[in-house]
Amino acid sequence: MAGVDWTVVADVVAAACLIGGALLAFAAGVGVVRFPDLLSRMHAATKPQVLGLVLVLIGVALRLRTGPVTSILVLVAVFGLLSSPVAAHMVGRAGYRTGKVRHDLLLVDELTVDQDAADARAAQDEARDHHRPTPAEVARDTEGRPPARGGGRPVG
């Protein structure tokens, strides 16, 4: 074991990491083309964005083996880990709101249930707000006070 050439070991590990990252990118390409709707395509597209990126960057770091470059590569990896959830959140949110989600393909859909409940509550509040007070009530309520802006909408 004393005669192990560590640069060769590092190169082999780097090669394995690079091929792994490229395979994940290829899998993402296949998934993006073949999957049926927006959310499953997002699922496929995330693979090279996180694990693939980290694998490729580990491969580069093991191959170059210099300190400053490694720190930059760590920065790229951290940025990728920070940015890809934000981008996926924005795309998924926009997709749900513009009706790009196929509900027949979902096994669990808690957002629609919650959204319907929230809509029903909003409609209820709206109906209560639009109950017009009689002139006598208005005179009694605003007596001795400057007219309030916004019409006393209930908070919350």
């Binding site: 993006v32 927006l38 997002m42 795309v91």
Partner: peptide, 10 residues
């Protein structure tokens, strides 16, 4: 457009 965005990400 969002499918294209995902493809752009890839």
């Amino acid at each position: 457009m969002l499918d294209r965005t995902i493809a752009l990400d890839v």
